[in-house]
């Protein structure tokens, strides 16, 4: 009799605990559902807001594009100006031949010797000079003045000399090349 009473009491206690646990689970479930529901609601709302924002920005972009389309003529002219300036810079900065040295050099040679040809080509770093001198004195005088010219223009350096004496006339033919370093 006593043991059955104990069993009954234990069973009732277990039943009470289980009921309590069950209630706790139900409450937690409701809370969890509410939290998840709220979270889902917030997510959906935020997605909706972002969608609306995207649509409104898209409309604003379309509107701005139409405005820009209205200025297409000015834009094309502006871009053309910019392109032409950019290419003009490229053209202006292309290396040229050293005519600013060739001309005074030619002028210098006229006093002592007879110049056959003074030549310079783009892409080469030298100017060539060929001619003839009446006698050895004028040739030496000319070479002295060439050295002075080279000292004056530090970029100029004599890199080649060739001389030959004409048997018939006794004239001295010469061919000289100057290197142009480009740093003056």
């Amino acid at each position: 009799m006593k043991s059955s009473i104990n069993l009954l009491q234990e069973a009732q206690q277990i039943q009470a605990r289980l009921r309590k646990f069950g209630l706790l689970l139900q409450t937690a479930s409701i809370v969890t559902l509410a939290i998840f529901g709220g979270f889902v609601f917030l997510l959906l709302s935020y997605t909706l807001i972002l969608n609306r924002q995207q649509n409104s920005i898209g409309e604003a972009i379309d509107e701005q594009k139409q405005i820009v389309e209205g200025f297409r003529s000015a834009e094309s002219k502006y871009l053309l100006v910019k392109q032409k300036l950019s290419l003009s810079r490229k053209a202006v900065s292309e290396p040229s031949i050293p005519y600013d040295l060739l001309i005074p050099l030619y002028e210098l040679t006229q006093t002592q010797v007879t110049v056959g040809e003074a030549k310079s080509e783009r892409g080469q770093t030298f100017v060539g000079l060929s001619g003839q001198a009446e006698d050895v004195f004028s040739l030496v005088q000319f070479l002295d003045s060439l050295d002075a010219f080279a000292r004056e223009h530090q970029a100029v350096r004599v890199i080649g000399k060739g001389f030959s004496r004409s048997g018939g006339t006794g004239e001295y033919r010469f061919e000289i090349a100057f290197e142009i370093s480009g740093e003056q």
Binding site: S96, L102, I103, T114, V115
Partner: peptide, 15 residues
């Protein structure tokens, strides 16, 4: 228009 010298050869005219 823009141009750039490529070659220049000066010769006395009597030559």
């Amino acid at each position: 228009p823009l141009m750039k010298l490529n070659t220049l050869s000066i010769v006395p005219a009597k030559a």
